[in-house]
Amino acid sequence: MFIGHGLLAFALVAAVAARYTTDRRALALGVLAGAFATLPDVDMLYAPVGLLWADGGPLALAEGFWSASTVVHRAATHSLVVAVVAAPAFAAWARGGPSGLLGGTLLGALVVASFAASGFLGGLVVGAFVLGGLAITTVAARRGVPPLAVLPTALVGLASHPFGDLFTGEPPRLLYPFETTLLVERVPLSGDPVLHLLGAMLVELATFWLAAVVYLHLTDQRLSDYLHPTVALGLPTGGVALAVPDPTLSLSYPFVFTVLGLGAAIGVLVGALDRLRSRERHRPLAMALTALAAVTVAVFAYLGVYLAA
């Protein structure tokens, strides 16, 4: 889900910006929004600590990782309150001068408030969030993005992120640091845990396709030029995935790793075949889009077999 946050924000901002500016500038603004949309997951920096006490194979390591992540994950950095303060603060910082001082003060206040509300670890996470946002803002300024454009891109990126987490795990604390809770449980896509996970995967894949379509449109390219016949290998993968336990949110790794492993293998295969044939098309893009198509086919194939069983 980490990449999907950024791709969704990229697609939304780039598509809207293209109506008011050049395609190249729209792409740049989309990338900036995508960077801000990935920023809230900086709170996962603490999660690797869980690997230290995990004892066992890959599943135990994964469980330790995610258990540790829940200590601070989806709290301060996923808050809409924090987003509406941080976005204008980053934009003010980009302006420099008195505005920059005001922006820095607001960001410092966010760190202090998080220390007060969540202790040392919470303050540390928000501190990393602030530093990451300042780094993104600085790079954007050096690339010629005006401060006025930082505000909407940062706001869309930061505010859209928590809504992508509503289908998996615990719902974000949307009003942190306030105790008011808007959502107490994840949004169910189905009462069947397998269908719920498959639905969440398809939502994620939809964000990938949306970003791909927007990018290809703004660069005047066609999807068909980048798809390789090896996409068809996704069909038997749906059958192979039946050999692993039924995928659910609590036991998703065997299925997800099987499907994504297929996509990675097909992407590498496409790159190798293009190199052998000296194809002129952009290899990384052909590899990525063919892999994405194969994974999508595999998930639908598994879904079809599951529903028919």
Rank of each mutant, 00 (worst) to 15 (best):
F2Q: 10
F2V: 12
I3F: 00
G6I: 02
L8W: 01
A11S: 04
T21N: 08
R24T: 15
A33N: 09
A35F: 11
A37R: 03
T38A: 08
T38Q: 06
L39F: 03
M44Q: 10
Y46T: 09
A47V: 10
V49T: 03
G50N: 12
L51Y: 13
G57R: 04
L59Q: 15
A60F: 01
A62W: 02
G64V: 02
G64R: 03
W66F: 07
S67D: 13
T70Y: 07
H73P: 15
A76Q: 13
T77Q: 04
V82L: 12
A86Y: 10
A86G: 07
A89E: 10
F90N: 03
W93P: 00
G97F: 01
P98R: 14
P98Y: 11
L102T: 15
G103W: 06
L106T: 04
L107V: 05
L110V: 03
F115K: 11
G119V: 05
F120E: 00
L121I: 10
L121G: 08
G123D: 00
V125G: 01
A128T: 12
A135M: 15
P146Y: 07
P146G: 08
A149G: 01
P152H: 08
T153L: 12
V156I: 11
L158E: 03
L158A: 08
S160V: 07
H161K: 06
G164L: 10
D165G: 00
T168S: 13
E170M: 04
P171A: 01
L175R: 06
Y176E: 03
P177G: 03
V184K: 11
V184A: 14
V187W: 07
P188S: 09
G191F: 02
P193C: 12
V194W: 03
L195D: 07
L198V: 12
A200T: 07
A200H: 01
A200P: 02
V203K: 00
A206I: 00
T207R: 02
F208L: 13
L210P: 04
A211T: 00
A211L: 00
Y215W: 05
L218N: 07
Q221W: 02
D225E: 11
V231L: 13
A232Q: 08
L233Y: 15
L235V: 08
L235R: 02
G238W: 10
G238E: 04
V240Q: 07
D246P: 01
D246L: 06
Y253D: 14
P254F: 01
P254H: 06
T258A: 14
G263P: 02
L269K: 00
A272F: 15
A272P: 08
L273I: 09
R275G: 15
L276E: 13
R277N: 12
R277W: 12
R283Q: 14
M287D: 02
M287H: 02
L289N: 06
L289A: 12
A291Y: 06
A293V: 05
V295A: 01
V297F: 14
V297S: 07
F300A: 12
F300M: 05
L303T: 11
L303A: 10
G304E: 14
L307V: 14
